[in-house]
Simulated scan of single mutants.
Amino acid sequence: MSELTAENAMMEITSDTYRYAGFWMRFWAYIMDLIVVASINGILLTPFKFINDGEVIEMGFWTLTGIIASIMFYLYFLLMTKKFGQTLGKMIMGIKVIREDGEKLTWNDLLFREVIGRFIHRVFSFLAVLYIVVAFTKEKQGIHDMIGNTRVVFVD
Rank of each mutant, 00 (worst) to 15 (best):
A135Q: 10
M11V: 03
L78F: 11
I98F: 14
L44H: 06
L4A: 05
I132M: 14
F23S: 05
D156Q: 13
Q86H: 04
N108A: 12
V37M: 00
M25V: 11
I13R: 11
D16N: 12
R151Q: 07
M25W: 12
G102E: 11
E114G: 04
L64K: 02
I132Y: 12
W24I: 12
L79G: 12
V37L: 01
T46V: 10
I120N: 10
V123F: 10
D109Y: 13
I35H: 01
W62G: 04
G89M: 09
R19T: 06
M93D: 14
I68G: 00
V152M: 02
L75P: 06
L105C: 14
L78H: 05
I120M: 07
F126I: 08
I143V: 03
K82F: 05
V129H: 08
E114D: 06
S2F: 09
L105F: 07
W28D: 01
D145V: 06
K104R: 11
E7R: 06
V153S: 05
P47C: 14
E103G: 05
D156Y: 11
I40K: 00
F84Q: 10
D33K: 01
F124M: 03
I120G: 04
V36I: 06
S70R: 09
M59F: 02
Y30V: 11
I116D: 02
T106L: 11
I43G: 15
V123R: 07
A21F: 10
S70G: 13
W24Y: 08
E3V: 15
I116P: 14
N52R: 15
S125V: 12
V155C: 04
